[in-house]
């Protein structure tokens, strides 16, 4: 379990990081927290010629409020996001973070690293999709902003090119009358989820449901989001029943030893109904 030899660079600007990636011609990996990448290297499932450590890149350690969003730089660690008062304005992020691995992993792992790694069962990509976060990507041709819903294109695959770096993610802060829910089931706390959901319910000034959204993870090759505004009811049993066809459509996995596709459909239905109702209750409280 030792990584194969690699060259290591620790650039201090985004430009230098991109130059290193360009020079490596596809045989480089970006290293931030490394909590997903290093196991892959240790098992020699990847043998990149060079690691470009963005931990010292100027500006990527910033965590700040920009307008109605919280912007998280690519070097910002998950535990910092979990602790910083600033992120209470993005409640879904705070709800999801304790589910990300273990404390020991969140000490080093970054929010953007989790997004760029794009594990289908990871929590943060689902949060980004549920909230329609915006992701900033910089490459040799300049910078671009990608909506979260267009960012994930397959299992561990994103639109980030081999010479590009995800430099920041912006999560919208919660509005008045918005409530959220988050739950997942894993065999053991910290393991990847068999299935999980992030939910968001927005009420209008009169208290009527303006929008209800669920985003499921661990059930497909990427987080999958559905608008379920028309389905939302206060009756959990009825909601479960109404969500069954949605779950059937969303679960796109053959299942594995830990849970069949049918089990995951059932799990998703139960978790989604529970967390949509919880989100609605919280939305009422936030009016």
């Amino acid at each position: 379990m030792k990584a194969a030899p690699f060259a290591y660079v620790r650039p201090t600007t985004v430009g230098d990081a991109v130059s290193e990636l360009v020079d490596a011609d596809g045989d480089a990996k970006v290293l931030a927290g490394g909590q997903s990448l290093v196991p892959v290297l240790a098992m020699r499932l990847a043998r990149p010629a060079i690691l470009v450590d963005i931990g010292a890149v100027d500006g990527l350690s910033s965590l700040r409020r920009i307008g109605d969003t919280v912007e998280i730089g690519a070097a910002v660690r998950q535990r910092r996001v979990e602790r910083d008062d600033l992120t209470t304005s993005v409640p879904l992020l705070r709800m999801a973070l304790p589910w990300v691995g273990h404390r020991e992993l969140r000490s080093r792992g970054t929010v953007c690293g989790s997004l760029a790694h794009a594990d289908p069962a990871a929590e943060l990509p689902a949060v980004a999709c549920c909230l329609r976060a915006e992701l900033d990507v910089v490459g040799p041709d300049g910078a671009r902003t990608v909506p979260a819903l267009e960012f994930f294109i397959g299992a561990m695959t994103t639109v980030v090119g081999p010479a590009e770096v995800l430099v920041a993610a912006r999560f919208p802060v919660a509005d008045r009358g918005e409530g959220f829910g988050f739950a997942e089931l894993a065999r053991r706390h910290g393991d990847f989820a068999l299935a999980g959901v992030a939910t968001r319910v927005a009420l209008d000034d009169a208290g009527a449901v303006r929008e209800a959204v669920l985003c499921a993870f661990g059930v497909s090759d990427r987080p999958v989001r559905r608008d379920v505004t028309d389905l939302l009811t206060d009756d959990e049993a009825a909601l479960r029943e109404a969500l069954e066809p949605v779950a059937t459509a969303l679960v796109d996995t053959a299942g594995d030893a830990h849970g069949s596709a049918g089990y995951r459909r059932r799990l998703l239905t139960v978790l989604a109904a529970r967390e949509l109702i919880a989100a609605r209750r919280r939305a009422e409280e936030a009016r």
Partner: peptide, 15 residues
Amino acid sequence: VDGDAARSCLLFAVQ
């Protein structure tokens, strides 16, 4: 590591 628990097998010393 800097006050927070971390897994030392997932960190390269050079980082």
